[in-house]
Design a protein around this nucleic acid. Structure first.
Lengths: 111, 111
DNA sequence: AATATATTTCTATAATTCCGGAATTATGAA
DNA sequence: TTCATAATTCCGGAATTATAGAAATATATT
């Protein structure tokens, strides 16, 4: 991931409503949520929500597909992971001695 | 980590110069870098750099200690990790079946 | 076709952030 | 104390972003 893309992603997430919307989608999983559903949960006017979703879309963090007259949004996990990797890239100059446990994130357990 | 803290951290990182500075510190490791050193590497005027560092400090992502007339900055790894954890929290509703490998970030291996 | 629902685009106002020169503060050296 | 270096604060104009009403578009239903 390029720095310019990382900044776009971080900018997209750096807002109360957008971060809330993105986390809803992350937690919703592969099924995602319809735009209207997000709006109901966050209690946002349509135009406001849409402009925020557009920021997340441009950043590549949210994808969507039309389903009838609804539009279903999903978090792009690969994009999110690329962003997290970018932040910790070459942490401590890859000197594992000084890097652990200092900058080793506590990660979810793999099943 | 609270949402409001996450937004502050993301806002801090959502800028070209600030992200570059933070990554320099992440990669520098426990020794960190002096303010002036960061300024030289990023070629930023003092006032500009300082205002950016203040944003990172307020967000809790950068700590510093005075050393003589220099001030040495360090990335706060715990804070960074908390932010990454916040983003992926309860991913896919913790349904590991749908969550792997979709939203399992590839992170650095533990040594 | 006519109507209802879902979402988006357009638009304007309000609010916030960015930048860096100049002045100021802090520390160490002569 | 005087001087030099390092870093910070102050300030205000320029640029960007946020918000949401109204109008427009897309799809489904009758």
């Amino acid at each position: 991931m390029k720095q310019i893309e990382a900044v776009a992603s971080l900018t997209a997430l750096a807002h109360d409503s957008r971060l809330a919307a993105f986390r809803l989608l992350v937690q919703a999983g592969p099924d995602g949520l319809a735009v209207g559903e997000i709006g109901q949960r966050l209690k946002l006017p349509g135009a406001t929500l849409n402009s925020h979703l557009n920021v997340l879309r441009r950043a590549g963090l949210v994808r969507d597909t039309r389903e009838g007259r609804s539009i279903r949004c999903r978090a792009d996990y690969a994009r999110m992971d690329a962003l997290l990797a970018f932040l910790t890239e070459n942490c401590c100059g890859n000197d594992t001695a000084s890097c652990t446990p200092a900058c080793t994130p506590t990660r979810r357990k793999r099943p």
